[in-house]
């Protein structure tokens, strides 16, 4: 039986830090281990402080441990693919194939089918991509993979826009955010309210065995969810929030902080669900107004001009408040 990360009780750090010399080895994170797989190794060309590079290593190292190295990853086009594999180099230290931008879930399904045909169901399959590849162009393949309950864990690294091609809006771009295609002009600057899709909830509606959200700010929780996902067969989905310093206009050193504030403000609810039912939420530990989250990011700078757009900030706060009510994020 796997224990949720939050149950580790330790009085200095340990529940939250990567490791701790005082904790038993099995209570430390995979990342604390010098023998971690380093699925995505040094020399990659991701920007300084890239949340996606970090999130991918966190998730895949956890998956490598959970599967004892018996796994293969299928990667959609996007930053993660481009910065890791400019020919003739690769940063991947796992079996890894690149699909197309829009078909990673289908290719993963095919890999799983092939492995099954060869009697190698001990090898587990992971599909992964950015939010564009998952929420938009790859969505039909993803929904089909869910609907057929194919034995694939699909991980979406959500940086809330098409970053690799220069920060265009995606179906995961939040309201009011400035992107190249949603400029901060006019009476409703930035991305529109009331559009876009919530793929974790759409996945949930498919009633697949396991759905979870996580952020790069809570490593123990993210690793737990990957481990837990690997305990199931069938379609599974993990949606990881990975801030992008370039696209969000945040400082490279603030990547984890920004992700933490997304969760602590209630804007990004962190939960898990089995067979269509929410089984756990990570409570907000130090609640903050959304303003603290928004202020760190250049893509919201237009909300803090003179005069500030308190009306828009209030609408974003209302979104957070709704999440808090809906998921019971506050004790």
């Amino acid at each position: 039986m796997t224990v949720p990360a939050q149950q580790i009780k330790f009085y200095q750090t340990g529940s939250f830090a990567v490791g701790n010399r005082l904790l038993d080895l099995e209570d430390r994170s995979v990342q604390a281990d010098t023998d971690r797989a380093n699925a995505l190794t040094s020399g990659h060309r991701a920007c300084q402080g890239c949340g996606e590079a970090l999130g991918a290593r966190y998730a895949l190292d956890a998956a490598m441990r959970a599967t004892q190295g018996q796994m293969v990853a299928v990667n959609a086009t996007g930053c993660l693919e481009v910065f890791s594999t400019p020919y003739p180099q690769t940063s991947w230290q796992i079996p890894w194939i690149h699909s197309l931008f829009g078909n990673a879930p289908a290719v993963a399904t095919g890999v799983a089918a092939a492995l099954k045909a060869k009697g190698r169901t001990d090898v587990r399959v992971i599909g992964q991509g950015g939010d564009g590849g998952t929420v938009d162009i790859g969505f039909a393949c993803l929904s089909g993979m869910f609907e057929r309950n194919d034995d694939v864990l699909f991980i979406c690294y959500d940086n809330e826009a098409y970053m690799n091609t220069g920060v265009q809006r995606s179906g995961a771009t939040p309201p009011a955010a400035r992107t190249m295609t949603t400029q901060a002009v006019g009476p409703e600057p930035g991305n529109a309210f009331g559009q876009g899709k919530n793929v974790p909830l759409i996945a949930l509606a498919h009633e697949i065995p396991y759905v979870a959200t996580a952020t790069v700010a809570e490593l123990h929780d993210l690793e737990y969810k990957v481990r837990r996902a690997m305990e199931f067969r069938g379609a599974r989905y993990i949606h990881v929030m990975v801030p992008c310093p370039l696209g969000w206009g945040s400082a490279a050193c603030d990547t984890i902080r920004v992700a933490r504030l997304a969760k602590e403000s209630g804007l990004f609810p962190v939960f898990e669900a089995e067979d269509g039912e929410v089984t756990g939420v990570v409570k907000i530990r130090r609640q903050v107004p959304v303003e603290e989250y928004l202020r760190l990011q250049g893509r919201y700078a237009h909300l803090f001009g003179d005069p500030p757009r308190t009306d828009v900030i209030a609408r974003i706060q209302a979104m957070a408040d709704r999440n808090i009510r809906r998921f019971g994020l506050v004790e």
Binding site: T13, V18, G19, R28, A32, S42, A46, C50, T255
Partner: peptide
């Protein structure tokens, strides 16, 4: 430093 492994964990570049 009290060896919490945070720096070791959070570096996106394994550096």
């Amino acid at each position: 430093c009290f060896e919490c492994d945070n720096c070791f964990g959070v570096c996106p570049d394994n550096a």
